[in-house]
Design a protein around this nucleic acid. Structure first.
Lengths: 235, 235
DNA sequence: CCCGTTAATATTGTCGACAATTATTGTCGA
DNA sequence: TCGACAATAATTGTCGACAATATTAACGGG
């Protein structure tokens, strides 16, 4: 289930009910950064943002702390906050971290996922496969489907540290890069088949194979991006 | 220079000079949690701690935010903060994360470390080897040496995301577990030889081997702890 | 005697103001 | 004209107080 909710087609996905106003503002700014409305590398003016969101600076700073936990901004003492830059190198660094962590998550998922979880994930994959062959707007759905697949495998590891790092601390940074570099799922169908192979390995309870396949899957994405961006750099 | 200062011989290696008072208090509380002076699972009273450290609640909350970034406390909205629990499962989870991340770091280190960095690390290993054969108090030095070795390899990856996650966000949690479970380097000499083998692979620029050796090295520690703690549980 | 409801208490979230530090601008001299 | 220094302005860090929420205690009914 995507979190976007019914409120607005595009606007911020205030899904996880934000109980406090700092939470709400955090989600709004997070969305603005990910979508690029606050451009990468730009300085964050606390008074200005506080006025913009009609909150106190204390509350804003609480929100900034959470943005920092997501690696979306950097803070320096007595200097201020800046939105992170989106560099090619930074993107590749994240993919390497994902390769390591999601590979491990996949290995653990092969051990820890329940039969029910596996069946549910297979159903999700089937749905994506059908909608992919039917729909034209493959890119968006595939993107969502990709995130959904990875998300479920990570959760399937039942390792709280892994889940926290990947789903809470790195997730939005990955989304930011996807938005900034306009990655519209260049290798949709191949990725789909790779997902299927990974899930099969998990269903076979073959942790080693599952890890290897997930690592190759992510490494392939990385290399694909690497080539694409280097090629663009040559233009 | 550590601000905790002469109080304790082992004092915290948080040498980055804290420029703001929130930083200073953060380091002090962090040290207190790691050493167990604030016991795991205990609730954190903001007014009490603020009075204890003679600072305002706002400043304390800033410090708490950084403690949360280190995964040393958990916060719940409108409820408060608690020091994390130290469970066997939690410890094993961290080791699995380390296995994945430090394995990748090691692979990258084999590519990115400069000859000078490798030579320096070799010198460190030699020092540890000598002091180990000379000294009786092997445990402490080996522990420090272990942390130092891993720290340098991680830095050698030259991957900022990896470095940040391992050296800033997980480092103190690892230290906390070591203190809480009293892990006094049970396999010192074996670990030393494993370190040497890892460094050799790095020096040979063999990333694949280096990753595999590092993963085995950490997995061996994990299994060692696993056995030990299960054995204790049987007493 | 136990349990649900309600009042009292304590804790957390939010606010605006002041202090300390940094960035900017204007001025002077070479 | 350029660079260094000083005064100004702006921004960040810190503080204490108030509002909103959760926890605890008291109370009454069953």
């Amino acid at each position: 289930m995507t979190q976007a909710g019914a409120k607005s087609p595009i606007s911020n996905p205030t899904s996880t009910q934000a109980v406090t106003t700092a939470d709400r503002v955090f989600e709004q700014i997070q969305y603005a950064i990910v979508e690029g409305h606050i451009p990468p590398g730009s300085k964050i003016s606390e008074p200005e943002l506080a006025r913009q969101y009609q909150i106190s600076r204390s509350t804003l700073r609480e929100a900034l702390n959470r943005l920092e936990k997501c690696h979306l901004i950097h803070r320096k003492a007595n200097v201020g906050s800046r939105v992170v830059e989106c560099t090619v190198q930074g993107l590749l660094e994240i993919y390497l971290v994902r390769e390591a962590l999601e590979g491990m998550a996949c290995r653990l998922a092969a051990i820890s996922m329940t039969d029910q979880e596996i069946a549910d994930l297979q159903a999700v994959l089937d749905t994506h496969g059908n909608s992919q062959s039917v729909q034209q707007g493959v890119a968006y759905y595939q993107e969502e489907g990709d995130l959904d697949f990875h998300y479920r495998v990570i959760k399937g590891s039942h390792n709280q540290q892994l889940i926290n790092i990947l789903c809470s601390e790195l997730y939005h940074l990955v989304r930011m890069y996807r938005c900034q570099f306009g990655m519209n799922s260049p290798r949709a169908s191949r990725a789909f088949h790779e997902h299927q192979a990974i899930l099969s390995a998990i269903a076979d309870r073959d942790g080693e194979l599952a890890e290897m396949l997930m690592r190759r899957h992510i490494a392939a994405s990385r290399k694909n991006i690497e080539n694409k961006l280097q090629q663009e750099g040559r233009d």
